[in-house]
């Protein structure tokens, strides 16, 4: 993967100990890291600490970055793994729930329904996204908010491109059903 010249220069500067260059990297990628952590770990008090951990890992391992992927993909991958490890250590029950939810999704597309009557559309969508399995909501976020390709998302989550596409399609179908329900509710209201 050919990095843009300015990204390559930035990486070289960081490798040579230029902390201002690393500050630029943090500024450029904090939104991405925050989104990945938010979507994978959910609403947690440690959100900012976890984001900081990600950047510390990036700093300590920048010499290992082999430039066979985009820098942002590599950073998102670290964020995803950090988040998964956090869930495993701090909230093992939640992590197990995630695995269970995904396993259930494999056999049933219509789970779980949520209380949507009293929310506006964005809240309903947000709530519906939260109810999706971890992998699906991560794919949704990276694809739509960060405009990443299936290949890049697959690299981050260490899964095949086809699986990423399948997760995205099934997640959007579920969310579309939530929106459809909203429109039906509007229709029956006086």
């Amino acid at each position: 993967m050919n990095q843009p010249t300015d990204t390559r220069a930035l990486i070289n500067q960081i490798r040579h100990g230029n902390r201002d260059a690393f500050r630029t990297l943090v500024e450029q990628n904090k939104r991405l890291v925050s989104h990945v952590i938010y979507r994978t770990a959910g609403h947690i008090n440690d959100h900012e600490d976890l984001c900081q951990d990600v950047f510390i890992k990036v700093y300590q391992n920048i010499h290992k970055f082999r430039e066979d992927s985009k820098l942002s993909t590599w950073i998102a991958q670290i964020a995803f793994n950090t988040s998964i490890n956090y869930l495993r250590k701090k909230r093992p029950s939640l992590y197990e729930d995630e695995s269970r939810i995904l396993a259930t999704y494999e056999t049933n597309e219509d789970l779980p329904d949520i209380q949507i009557e009293k929310m506006d559309r964005n809240q309903r969508i947000a709530k519906a996204i939260d109810s999706l399995p971890l992998q699906m909501r991560t794919v949704i976020t990276l694809y739509h908010l960060e405009e990443m390709s299936y290949k890049e998302i697959g690299e981050i989550m260490n899964m095949p491109e086809g699986t990423m596409k399948s997760y995205l399609f099934r997640a959007r179908k579920k969310l579309k059903n939530v929106l459809s329900q909203e429109l039906e509710l509007k229709d029956i209201q006086p």
């Binding site: 904090k30 938010y38 959100h47 900081q52 700093y59 947000a126």
Partner: peptide, 17 residues
């Protein structure tokens, strides 16, 4: 989405390196 990151996030991160 609303993702809370404080204004001093970058400074805090740099300080913790």
């Amino acid at each position: 989405p609303v993702v809370p990151l404080s204004n001093h996030f970058t400074d805090d991160t740099m300080a913790s390196l």
